[in-house]
Design a protein around this nucleic acid. Structure first.
Lengths: 195, 195, 195, 195
DNA sequence: CATGAATGAGTATTCATTCAT
DNA sequence: CATGAATGAATACTCATTCAT
């Protein structure tokens, strides 16, 4: 009989928001952003259309929140161990982590590449603030290649990232046929030779 | 003002169609497919909205024709010299051709990746019949890697294509900053060592 | 913490209702009726949305109650002294009262004119039962003009009320710039010449 | 068989736009702006909902165009004869014109007062640029009262306009019962005494 | 009595497509 | 062959109202 406490309401809101974001992510990844209607999202989340607007002020806002949430996940994915110096072993671990991350969060990655390929990608990048994150990784990898005496460590870093991008692209596009683990092993062989 | 011959009419039709396709490609690449309206296309092609339907039965149809046209271009891009055996020199040439193709047809590639990343990519692939094309190249590359004693030539082929995909992605996404030529040189260095 | 008596409960209810009506009036006057949401009203009254429905069955009902309450206030504003005969002095007092009433209840008047100008004004008038009130005043004023030998006392009564309407309109629309007191003085000069 | 000429299209557009504006004005005046849907307007104009957007980019835009059109009409209504000095006869004529204008354009005036009483009236006034128009009239009237030795010509001008406002209000609110002509006659008697 | 999450009918707006001329 | 006015289905979003707690 007693009204719900603030904590109860907060929990409900939290959970509901999460559910909506999950539903949206899945649908965005599967159908594309434009082709996913608020109705679709509501249906998938088993709620009414209107309720979404209790949690997000617009589709745009929902998209932004999803991106924010994605960023947070990215930090989970990538969190480096801190000293910023990769040993050969850590490089191997890094590659494995990356690939494992691709495999475990396919919807997220599909969503990210969807965003990137879209017209307003530049703005998205800003919103994503991916650079902050990337630049850290970038330096780590570049340093690694320098230390390992790669001929053109700068370009090698570009190539390395390019290859990872290619892997994601291929994997999200065709997770069943793409031999991601074999490719990963090749990559490790190439890049993780002991000093 | 002699009446036009049938051939002349056909030519006019063909040209007009081409113009519409070009307008569409450019807009699709710049704004995305969904965000490009028939009105936009008409305006860009300097014709009326209604006239488009004289050449294409629907937006869907226009899209399909564009894809077909793209396929044809792809054949132009990739046309191998026939014997299906790549020498080291030809491999180098192939990579250079590829990259040059990326640079010269950025709209096409943007469009292609847009299609691929989209929901119905599987169907698109079918429409694209990319496999036919790809499989030829695929074999050539695989054979090359075998001949050049790469450890796991099958996976190396995958990795190679993956890397090319990554290059396109990075290039179309940021043509100004991405050091595509440096990356290309690295690739050549890696893959085109003389036997 | 003695349990509350019935009377106390009734009083609380009454007060709460009053608060809601006040919040609604202020918002209606400021933002218009349609553009004021139940949420707005709840927020302004520091209660929850749902609670309003404990006091009013609908927005429509709330509006009607507000109108009723307005009527009561009107009676306060206008309460004539009973004999229905205005002396010159009382006429002056009446005008002054009116204007003072406009100034002190600007929200109420804004709200009233909002209602009147709206589509369903005729119905509103019925709800307002303004006529009852007005007819009393009407007769008093008409009698006054007759006694004071105005040429066409009937039309003069219309004109007089018309002018008061005009004053309210101008005042509520632009309380800062409209020289209501000067206009009032002119009115008094015109209508309150001693017999 | 020939396609329509530009002139034909232009005429169609012109006419259609006018029809939509007329439909909108009538409905806005009758039902209020908020309570009039685009659907309503379309139905009244015997066209489809979508077509309105071929002529007006939004409801807001339609409203603004209506206001613009209203301004133009106002200039028709009020256009003074130029020298800016009113003779007694002209003052009489002016009052008669005003009242006649009220009677002939009841929807326009209802619409105007609707706008004025609404929250965003201040902005509307700006859009209306009524002041430009009003200030001209204002000076003419003020000059007239000065020349005719009214005691406080400034306030008298306010009162005069106030009365006209009151007349419109009463008339649009109840065109059948309000004795506008009697009131007009009284006004003329009061203000148009020969010097 | 009190809360705010939840619903769904209603509204503005977009855009592929049709069609009279 | 060519035009752009016209249509209507689809979609984002609002808000009064209900209801479990």
């Amino acid at each position: 009989m007693a009204p719900k406490t603030k904590e109860q309401f907060a929990k409900i809101r939290e959970d509901r928001k999460e559910e909506i974001l999950n539903a949206a992510l899945e649908l965005f990844a599967k159908q594309g952003i434009t082709h996913t209607t608020m109705q679709d999202i509501a249906r998938k989340a088993n709620i009414s259309k209107g309720l979404i607007y209790n949690y997000f002020s617009s589709k745009e806002d929902l998209l932004n929140e999803l991106i924010k949430s994605f960023i947070n996940h990215l930090y989970d994915f990538f969190d480096p161990d801190g000293d910023g110096i990769l040993t050969t072993e850590e490089m191997k671990y890094f590659i494995e982590q990356q690939v494992s991350t691709f495999k475990m969060n396919i919807d997220y990655w599909k969503f990210l590449y969807m965003l990137l390929i879209q017209p307003s990608a530049q703005e998205m990048m800003d919103k994503l603030q991916l650079e902050v994150l990337t630049s850290k990784m970038w330096k780590m990898i570049a340093t690694y290649f320098k230390k390992h005496n790669f001929e053109d460590p700068e370009s090698e870093t570009w190539l390395f990232h390019t290859t990872l991008d290619g892997i994601v692209m291929n994997y999200i596009f065709n997770p069943d046929k793409y031999p991601i683990d074999n490719v990963k092993d090749l990559l490790i062989k190439r890049y993780c030779k002991p000093l």
